[in-house]
Amino acid sequence: MKKINVKIANKLGEKFKEANIQKNVNSTEVLEVKEKYNPILNYDEFELENLQKEQMIIFEEKAIHHANELSKNTIALSKIFYEAQKTLAFAGSGLFTKWYETLGFKKDFVYMLLKRNELFMEVENKRIFEIPEKAIKTISKIKDKVDVKEILEIVNAEKPVVVAKEIEVSLSGNPKDRLPEIGDIEILENDFNKIIKLERKIAEYYQKIKDLEYELSILKKSR
């Protein structure tokens, strides 16, 4: 029985040591982030423990960084597709499609970037690469009926999809093309809040499962 206790104690000691190492690494990372990054969100409102708040600041900084990198890559890719399409335009039918499909790109992805690049060449605003695809599709449908000023109004709007739809409806004059009501927007926001709550519950259950798996592994080794 004493041997079993020694085994468990050693195992717990190793686990404690790993946790301390991880904590030190996190602390170092937090200090580095705090020196160069000012968080957008106030994590005091999230009802989190201090360590969790610090981790969320790190996650936020990394998310913003990678989002910026993604935006740069999207702009670069859109230019590449545009130039490749132009180069292959007179070389033969279907060659551009064959080219991007062989490289592993999907048609919808490629042509959405081509639309973004086309609009960017007209309005010269990089937010073209950030607004939702639905807004881009609506702009593409109405761009021959509106001027650059109205396109920029959509691009710079807080809710580009809603503004784009509003302009489209005003051009069509069709009352059936109803804009989203305030109630519709509230439902979407409520759904988003529900998603966050469910994700938190999943994370809690996942942690409980991990703890149980750890206890089970100790019991199995002690047999």
Rank of each mutant, 00 (worst) to 15 (best):
A9I: 15
G13R: 14
F16A: 15
K17I: 15
A19P: 07
N20C: 07
Q22M: 10
S27D: 10
P39V: 06
L41I: 07
L41P: 01
N42W: 05
N42H: 04
D44R: 09
D44L: 12
E45N: 14
E49G: 05
E54R: 04
F59S: 06
A63R: 06
A67V: 00
K72V: 02
L77S: 04
L77Y: 08
K79F: 11
F81D: 09
K86Q: 11
F90V: 10
F90A: 14
F96P: 03
F96Y: 01
Y100L: 08
E101C: 04
K107A: 00
K107S: 03
D108V: 09
F109H: 00
V110D: 03
Y111I: 07
N117R: 09
E118M: 12
R127A: 07
I128Y: 04
I139F: 05
I142H: 10
D144K: 14
V146C: 08
I151T: 05
A157K: 07
V162D: 13
V169D: 12
L171A: 09
N174P: 05
P175E: 11
P175C: 02
L179Q: 11
I182C: 01
G183F: 01
D184E: 14
D184S: 14
N193W: 02
N193G: 03
I195W: 01
I196P: 01
I196H: 07
K197G: 02
L198A: 06
K201G: 08
K201F: 09
Q207Y: 10
E213P: 04
E213T: 13
Y214T: 13
L216S: 13
L219E: 08
K220D: 15
K221C: 10
S222N: 13
R223M: 09
R223G: 13
